[in-house]
């Protein structure tokens, strides 16, 4: 067979280029545009170089928001991944209860984010909310609008309620796809339940867990809507995460240069951490 050389085939790539350009490159370039220039309106721009980036990277306000964000995402992942995996392991593999469980698990995922925020906002009110009142009646002083700890507690509880299901569903899908023969072989080999989990289920779940952790990492690192509705970033700045701080720069202070620079830094952090995590997880794949 002779190989046909035809460079016109490159034209087939054009639609993809156009698509990527319109949904990623052009919007991103606008942000880049603002991040290296200064403007006072009237469509007049002045060169600012890396000034905005330096300001952001040096500002304590950014450091604090970033730290809060990392702590929040860390806690959320540490709770949701083991919990989701545990629930998936407990769910029935066949029978009529499968659909019941799956529907119950999917429910939190089907609720719009701002509704989730509102629900928890009302439920956790210390004077009239079911949750808030219950906690206070136990003798614990709980008020998420005044105490940072209460606010964090409520936010984490809300996020766990909202998103653990995603981990459960992914893990469950992974679990049911393990062929029966593995469990049968383990039985014959005399493996205890822990060994079955450690040597069969966990290795087989590696890929779905990678996806689950990646998705939860990215989503929780970008959390905005629920937090704004629930605490608005308060009390004080206690729950001002990166996205909330960004909106304060951009819309609160109309500080477009800093906002644009921060957007790019924010984006690069997520990109870098996702890449790092994925590379580490897949490192041993082909050895």
């Amino acid at each position: 067979m002779t190989k046909v050389q035809n460079n016109r085939a490159w034209f087939f790539v054009l639609p993809v280029f156009a698509l990527v350009a319109f949904n990623a490159l052009i919007p991103l370039m606008t942000v880049v545009n603002y991040s290296i220039q200064e403007t006072f309106g009237n469509n007049e721009f002045f060169w600012a170089g890396s000034r905005w980036f330096e300001d952001i990277l040096r500002s304590e306000r950014f450091h604090a928001a970033l730290l809060r964000q990392i702590v929040f995402t860390g806690i959320v992942l540490l709770i949701q991944v083991p919990l989701g995996l545990g629930i998936a392991l407990c769910m029935p593999k066949k029978g009529p209860w499968v659909s019941v469980c799956l529907v119950l698990m999917s429910l939190p995922l089907l609720i719009p984010w701002n509704v989730v925020g509102s629900m928890w906002n009302i439920m956790a009110l210390p004077d009239i909310g079911l949750l808030g009142k219950a906690i206070n009646s136990l003798g614990i002083n709980y008020n998420y609008t005044r105490q940072p700890f209460s606010a964090w507690f409520t936010l984490i509880l809300m996020d766990v309620w909202h998103w653990t299901s995603l981990v459960v569903l992914l893990c469950y899908a992974g679990l049911v796809s393990i062929p029966d023969a593995y469990y049968q072989a383990a039985k014959i080999d005399g493996a205890r339940p822990w060994a079955v989990f450690r040597y069969i289920q966990l290795p087989k779940l590696k890929h779905v867990l990678t996806i689950a952790i990646l998705l939860r990492f990215m989503d929780s690192f970008m959390i905005y809507t629920e937090v704004v509705v629930l605490t608005g970033g308060g009390p004080g700045n206690a729950t001002t995460f990166l996205s909330i701080d960004l909106v304060k720069y951009a819309l609160g202070q109309f500080d477009l240069g800093h906002a644009a620079a921060m957007s790019i830094i924010y984006f690069l952090i997520i990109l870098f951490l996702s890449w790092l995590f994925y590379t580490l997880m897949m490192k041993n794949e082909n050895t």
Partner: peptide
Amino acid sequence: FQFPVIYDT
């Protein structure tokens, strides 16, 4: 078994 069952890790 019909399909090889091994402990991957």
